[in-house]
Design a protein around this nucleic acid. Structure first.
Lengths: 200, 200, 200, 200
DNA sequence: GATGAATGAGGTTTCATTCAT
DNA sequence: TATGAATGAAACCTCATTCAT
């Protein structure tokens, strides 16, 4: 174990350097030279671990997308009511986006940089992930717990609002992660309108 | 008038081609060769209108950011109550993002591609724009109309949720633009929770 | 008459701007854009006066080379003894190089930038000019007034030493032009060795 | 050993090709394509050895300027009288300029092509080198061995006259290098005037 | 496991030049 | 006289990639 995140080998170091750079500059704005320099390696050495720049991006996308699903699905399943399931989902989704900020940033914004089959593969994974939330929302709609016009609009709004966390969240900020997750959950469930009127 | 949007000159055509390509592939993923080809010009001719690729991007960002503010500020000012002002702001913001989808896509996602002073300039404009909404939200909080913990979280959530429209909105979709704006306004104001419980 | 040197027209202004820039940066280091900017004209306007960049350079070379000969030949012819003829030649040569510093700088150092016939033309003029001095030197050698091994070495040394004036002379310097000419004449005729020993 | 000058590696070959081309056409008149073609390499390969065209020029300037000093300083120091020291200096200076003709040609004529710090660096080295001769000349003046009005004029005349060798010297010429050095030394020390009058 | 050397395609940009107006 | 708009070649440089070692 080389550091607190448990990097064990060079491949992992390259992966992380790539993630950091691509999050900051985008896929096309990141050169393998940058990545190599960041890990004190020669550019050609990267090819020992990843067959191409594309595959490096794909590796990031695959791992992140799968980990995201693995982090969000269980809490949704474990929760009881639709409302609780949605809340659990949002919370896990937000926490993941904040915790693995750089990876989700890359994953959310560089799908367009994927070529050929890679793009299809990741797009499919993304769509399947979105279904997790759409299903909860639609169930809630049928149960009369939720109210909205178009489930696609509602799902997309949810996903982009929460994914935005990776854009603006700063680990050194004054608001704790858990509180942010709570706020977003509340916001999506009940809006910004003050609750008093409800109890009237 | 050269086309339905009213392009009159070459500079405008280059601008639009650049916007289209950068929206699809990002700044670094777009080459001036692509842009030139799209307007049936030599690459060198682009330099007659824009001194560099950076300046071309900057031109897009400047125009879009200013137009956005010009589109959103008046409705907010014109509206009465905080609730109405927020609704008017969201609606104008969403409509602009859907109407000028490609430009806002570029403007929202390529700030990182800006260099030096250009970045500072646009960042300042963006921040000032965000204040428009933060002010409304904070006023509503003081008046007891709105309820949220952190105005930055609330503002960021609002901005990213609405800006997301440019990402997923398709002009050929089945849901009308106005309806989408309504839905997002409602969503942000009251959440997905069905209203009946409120009146209980 | 537009200024103290008598520039009357745009062609002359272009000529001078080109001379100044080429003296500073060389032919290949000077762009027509630079020249145009210096005379507040559009690049394309230069072509009304000169058919090409090459011809502009050629114009400088032709005029300068001819003026140089016209300035140096008469004094040599007018003088009496070989020693006096050589002195008069050096003096005129040096004064011309200092007086028309920028033009001679370009003319002396950019022959290599000339293409095709232009190069031959100017080279021939240059060689003919050099003969002026070689002839004087050889005459002096035959008369026993001068002493040197190889007339080419002697001529070349003379020409480069004097042409060097254009390189290091600054009009604002503390040493007057006439004094510089005197010193170089003396140097070439009698060397740096102090004369007293001679009279011993 | 790849050729008679002892080139051992690619970097050296590039260096020499650049020197040859820049000597013939100047820095701005030489393209890296030319250099690459001369060494049968791809243009991009040049960048493996030199980070930019500027750095390539700078490498030439640095090496040549330092070698020049290393070649000229010892003979001056080793010699006895001022006259002998000046003679030794001129001889070494001339021999170096003839021996490394192309490099000195580039170094003497392309300082203007240097940008930023590089220019300052080389200019400083050049000035320090010139001081070597000025000091000898001034010492000779104080000792009454030499006679001239202005040491700067005398130094400049010396430097340009000798540096001229690199311009007109051709290795295949009929006059031996050593004889040329002798002639220039004699010329500078005693001028072209025949010596008999001295003994009169 | 890693590197040094080389590649070839392609990037942005600049250049001299043209020509209708 | 002078310009605005466009060109096409070529400039410098960077990129992802390969491969023998």
């Amino acid at each position: 174990m080389a550091n607190r995140h448990g990097a064990r080998n060079t491949e992992e170091l390259i992966y992380r350097a790539a993630v950091g750079l691509m999050a900051a500059r985008g896929y096309h704005g990141t050169t393998l030279r940058d990545v190599a320099r960041a890990v004190s390696l020669q550019m050609s050495s990267i090819y020992y671990y990843f067959p191409s720049k594309q595959e490096l991006l794909l590796a990031v996308m695959r791992r992140t997308t799968r980990d995201l699903r693995a982090a969000v699905e269980p809490p949704i399943s474990a929760a009881g009511s639709v409302r609780e399931r949605l809340g659990a989902g949002i919370r896990a989704h937000v926490l993941f986006h904040a915790d693995r900020r750089l990876e989700t940033l890359v994953t959310d914004s560089e799908i367009r940089a994927l070529e050929g089959e890679g793009r299809e593969e990741i797009t499919a994974l993304r769509d399947a992930y979105g279904d997790l939330f759409r299903e909860v929302l639609e169930t809630g709609l049928q149960e009369g717990v939720f109210s909205f016009e178009d489930s696609h609009v509602a799902t997309n709004a949810l996903m982009t609002m929460c994914a935005g966390v990776a854009v603006w969240y700063r680990p050194d900020g004054h608001t704790s992660l858990s509180r942010i997750a709570d706020q977003l959950t509340h916001l999506y469930l009940d809006g910004v309108t003050a609750s008093p009127p409800r109890q009237a």
